[in-house]
């Protein structure tokens, strides 16, 4: 669904304004980036995705970590994005993914918490992604002195189809699935972001010991996620004790947009963490 023309105009105007002035740290306004709540994960969106993890241009998302591929080449290192045809790499790999990051509340809370870890928000809705990207840009400008938020970025992706295009086997240490769309309808269960078969993909991109964080206010969805991760031989549930000791859990409860909404409505938040266990030997 295209955004209302007025919204679109406002977004474009904002983009033009901040582009004009190098050091503009103004934050984007959420109301101009709202979008219909659901996107169909099965349809052929005109998505851009790398053909394989090695074809991913991470440097354009984390310019502060870009590696100069060749001294002699004299590549333009100014902030001009998407100019280079060849993928450029970063000195570090992304290790935290916030899947379905929405407006990025969690992403922006995690960035200062893990200042030396690259964090990526992944979102299927175009203008929501655009909002987060604008906010990343603004925060980086605001934090030019201390180099904050250089480790946070957001890209548009349908993670249910293309997660392995972005990450190598065992690349990630943490995956967040915060307040996923519940897809109540019976026949839409395959559209849920957690299922026995998709969990194999999360297991593939997570390294042994890595953790999937889930939170929802829908009790049935919580039970569903627990059931499907517990059934999957590559995961074990993290004990309540350990869960409450993990700082990320508090951040996830309080810093996600949905988490805040649920708090305002005095709703209940269900949390569950699952650890990737080592693959068993071949039979």
């Amino acid at each position: 669904m295209p955004g209302k023309p007025a919204k679109k105009q406002k977004r474009q105007q904002f983009k033009k304004d901040v582009e004009g002035e190098e050091a503009d740290g103004r934050l984007p306004q959420k109301k101009f980036y709202r979008q219909r709540a659901h996107a169909n994960p099965f349809s052929d969106h005109s998505l851009e995705y790398p053909r394989s993890p090695s074809g991913m241009d991470w440097a354009s998302h984390y310019p502060a970590y870009a590696v100069k591929s060749n001294e002699g080449e004299g590549r333009d290192e100014s902030r001009g994005e998407g100019e280079t045809a060849k993928p450029r790499s970063t000195s570090k790999q992304v290790e935290i993914a916030d899947i379905g990051c929405g407006f990025g509340g969690l992403l922006f809370a995690l960035a200062p918490k893990f200042p030396s870890t690259l964090i990526i928000g992944m979102e299927i809705r175009t203008s929501v992604t655009e909002y987060v990207q604008e906010k990343v840009r603004a925060l980086r400008v605001q934090h030019r002195e201390d180099g904050g938020y250089q480790n946070a970025a957001c890209l548009r992706a349908n993670t249910m189809k293309f997660l392995p295009n972005f990450f190598e086997k065992g690349q990630l240490g943490k995956i967040f699935l915060c307040f996923p769309d519940p897809h109540f309808k019976q026949r839409k269960h395959k559209a849920r972001i957690v299922s026995y078969t998709l969990n194999s993909e999360y297991a593939y991109v997570l390294r042994p010991g890595g953790v999937v964080y889930t939170i929802t206010d829908v009790e049935d969805l919580h039970n569903w996620m627990v059931e499907h991760f517990e059934k999957h031989p590559s995961f074990e549930r993290v004990s309540k004790d350990e869960q409450e000791k993990d700082d990320c859990v508090e951040i996830m409860r309080n810093e996600t947009e949905e988490g805040k909404k649920v708090t305002r409505n005095n709703g209940i938040k269900y949390v569950a963490l699952f650890r990737r266990i080592e693959d068993p030997p071949w039979p």
Binding site: A37, D181, P182, V218, D220, E258
Partner: peptide, 13 residues
């Protein structure tokens, strides 16, 4: 039912 009335989600849900 998969959601309680407390659940805050889109109108469609």
């Amino acid at each position: 039912p998969a959601a309680s009335v407390l659940t805050v989600h889109s109108g469609r849900n």
